[in-house]
Simulated assay, not measured.
Amino acid sequence: MLKLPSGDTVPLMQIALFQPDQPTNTGTLLRLGACMGTPVHIIEPCGFPFSKRALRRYAMDYADHVTLHHHADWHAFQRWRIESGSRLLLLTTKSAQPYHQFTYQPDDILMVGSESTGAPDYVHDIADHRLLVPMTANVRSLNVAVSMAMVLGEGLRQTDNWPEG
């Protein structure tokens, strides 16, 4: 929740990275979260060492500006998500639902899978919705950070939940 100067609070859209394996993409997504005021969830195991020192290297000086939630595994994230009551929206090439034709809620969690393997079936099965970034034929996929930026931008536009400042 974001506390406004009026004292009111508004729910925040959130970013989740399922078992990321590319530290540069993780850094980019952490910077995206910092710049958009969007909390970021990292779900272990990562394909690279994840520590406070590594975080500073990946996210550079943005590490101090992102709200980071670190989950030891998928089950820990799921327990947190169920308590939060937020919908889980999985960005995937295995969907027919274009992201720009979907109706977002302010507290949605936008998730990308691992860069090398995507998200396994059990994540697809639990996701409340699966969203596709339409692309031209004969290409495999966009970079996860690019996809997330596109979808987050649409979600923030629809919910008019842009960061102040």
Rank of each mutant, 00 (worst) to 15 (best):
L132P: 06
H100P: 03
L29M: 15
I43R: 02
L55H: 02
A34V: 06
W80L: 08
V123R: 03
S84I: 07
G7C: 08
T9Q: 14
A72E: 15
L68M: 08
L110R: 00
H129C: 04
I15Y: 12
A59R: 01
R56P: 04
G27D: 14
N143Q: 10
R57L: 14
H65M: 11
M60K: 07
M150T: 01
T26W: 14
W80V: 02
R130F: 06
P98I: 05
A96E: 15
W162L: 13
L89W: 13
M150E: 12
Q78E: 15
G153K: 04
V144I: 14
T38C: 15
T136L: 15
K52N: 12
I15F: 13
A137M: 10
V112G: 01
E154C: 07
R130D: 06
H65R: 12
P45T: 01
R157N: 08
M150I: 13
P49G: 01
T93K: 10
G27K: 01
T67C: 09
E83M: 05
D160N: 11
F102E: 10
H124T: 01
L90S: 06
H69D: 09
M60P: 01
R140N: 14
F18L: 14
M150V: 05
K94P: 01
L30Y: 07
K3V: 13
G118Q: 04
M135H: 04
N138R: 10
P120K: 02
T159D: 11
L32K: 00
M60D: 12
D125S: 04
P5C: 06
L88Q: 05
Y99M: 05
Q101I: 00
T24H: 13
R81E: 10
I43F: 09
A137S: 11
D160M: 05
G37I: 05
Y99W: 12
V123S: 01
A137Q: 13
A76E: 14
M135V: 06
F50E: 03
Q105G: 00
N161R: 11
E164N: 05
M150N: 02
K52I: 00
L142E: 13
